[in-house]
Design a protein around this nucleic acid. Structure first.
Lengths: 255, 255
DNA sequence: TTTTCCTACTGACATTTATCATTAGCCATT
DNA sequence: AATGGCTAATGATAAATGTCAGTAGGAAAA
């Protein structure tokens, strides 16, 4: 964990990441245009705050191989992580190996702030899904950014609150939706997270196990469900790669 | 909604509620003693902050009958709610009636801040479980309390982060625990929330449907599971009332 | 090229859980 | 005490999903 490289760090980048998250969730709530105004206003005001700018001088960067752990359940957080490039998942582990994926991240996202906020050990594990370049932002740096300014605090709280709403929605769906719906939802979530803007014929290389752990179901059941989707021409499967053929139908399944 | 009564409001009460929540979650993490220090320190420092004291002058109080709605999914929040007396649940509704309980509250708790933080419509519904006395704290009052002081912001964020951890834990359990375990967990949760300190022979009057909606399962299945617990002498059932006979076994079920 | 290993896939089956239908019990009102 | 209405309980059954065991295929290593 000591092969970090020191590089200049600009707070604005972190703020942008918060904003980006807020923007995305607002987008889903179809309030995008309204919030873009507030966003730009905020970014420029933040830029004006000189005390924010000089907060932190360095950041550490590290490259993680596919399947490499970034942090592990039970260890203590020293800061937060920011994805420069690649893909990351966070998951919780159930008795004897079953996993449930709690978060998916890509370039521009940050993760690992929950344990930091709570001042406890990590209660989940972060792992690279692809080879990834992750930068580390020390605790003090992060906290001073978050708490020095009430507006930033507010933004950050809004973001966490959004996360909380999402989890509650997820609980409802996990409780009462069929596996079929949940697997479709997992594909939709993966598409929303990893499809690049303007990209058509989106496909991804993700293990059946990860999809199962996102849907909270057995791997075999997931595979069968995916085969069903393939028969229905909702997706295409070539080797380990899944192509989304009909996003709309997947997102609006009857049952 | 206009039969509110005006009554003096002391911010300290809300701060105490935040602290109480933090204390409870910390307790579970067995870090109680450590945090009591910080708590007292914080309360006294907050008391010293004169600008905090004069923030809000009034609050509204209303009595809700059992099963009466306090706020409803889809409506816009105007503030947060603080429980003076009674019990409250919040729940989300699935297609055609199924409910999932997302929160349980009692005297000293506050609820309904999520939609407020997100600046969106309520995404859940709050309903009184018993006849309850609820006071309403207007948005502005709440926000100025939360954002005026960085320490308060931090406390509040820590609290929300704790909520988020809890939801993730709940997701893991909902995904992979048997109904039996989840029903036991629901009883444990109810006990933790509603058992008074020092109370022995704790019993509660809660509908089987509410327990089912807490466990995310069908009411009939819950009833059968409860009958099983009764046979195993883990609980006792007298009419609609459930008495917890063996909390430890319920909390540490094999499967 | 062969071998190895990991993942995807398939089948058979057991188990869990939901659903539908019905009965029993309790409380409140008359 | 009788009636009505709601909740709890039970039974029978179907449906959904998990589990176990085994096969296939493709990529990496030898």
């Amino acid at each position: 964990a000591d092969d970090y490289v020191t590089k200049p760090f600009d707070d604005i980048e972190l703020l942008n990441a918060i904003e980006s998250r807020l923007r995305k969730s607002d987008l889903m709530k179809k309030e995008f245009s309204k919030n873009v105004e507030g966003l730009n206003e905020f970014i420029s005001s933040a830029k004006g705050m000189e005390d924010l700018k000089k907060l932190s001088e360095t950041r550490e960067i590290k490259t993680y191989k596919k399947k490499e752990n970034i942090y592990q359940e039970g260890s203590y957080p020293r800061g937060i992580y920011f994805v420069n490039a690649g893909k990351v998942k966070t998951f919780k582990t159930h008795e004897l190996g079953k996993e449930f994926i709690t978060g998916l991240y890509k370039e521009g996202d940050f993760f690992g702030y929950l344990a930091l906020m709570e001042e406890t050990k990590y209660i989940d594990t972060a792992e690279a899904l692809d080879e990834s370049e992750i930068c580390f932002i020390p605790k003090e740096e992060f906290f001073s950014l978050i708490f020095r300014n009430a507006e930033v605090s507010k933004r950050f709280m809004k973001m966490i609150s959004g996360d909380l709403s999402d989890k509650e929605e997820q609980l409802l769906k996990l409780a009462y939706n069929s596996v079929r719906k949940r697997v479709a939802e997992a594909l939709v979530t993966l598409t929303n997270r990893y499809k690049k803007d303007g990209e058509t014929n989106f496909s991804m290389n993700i293990s059946r196990e990860d999809i199962a752990n996102l849907a909270g179901t057995a791997t075999e059941t997931t595979i069968r469900t995916l085969s069903g989707f393939k028969d229905e021409k909702l997706i295409d499967i070539k080797g380990g790669t899944i192509a989304i053929l009909d996003y709309e139908k997947l997102a609006n399944l009857r049952n």
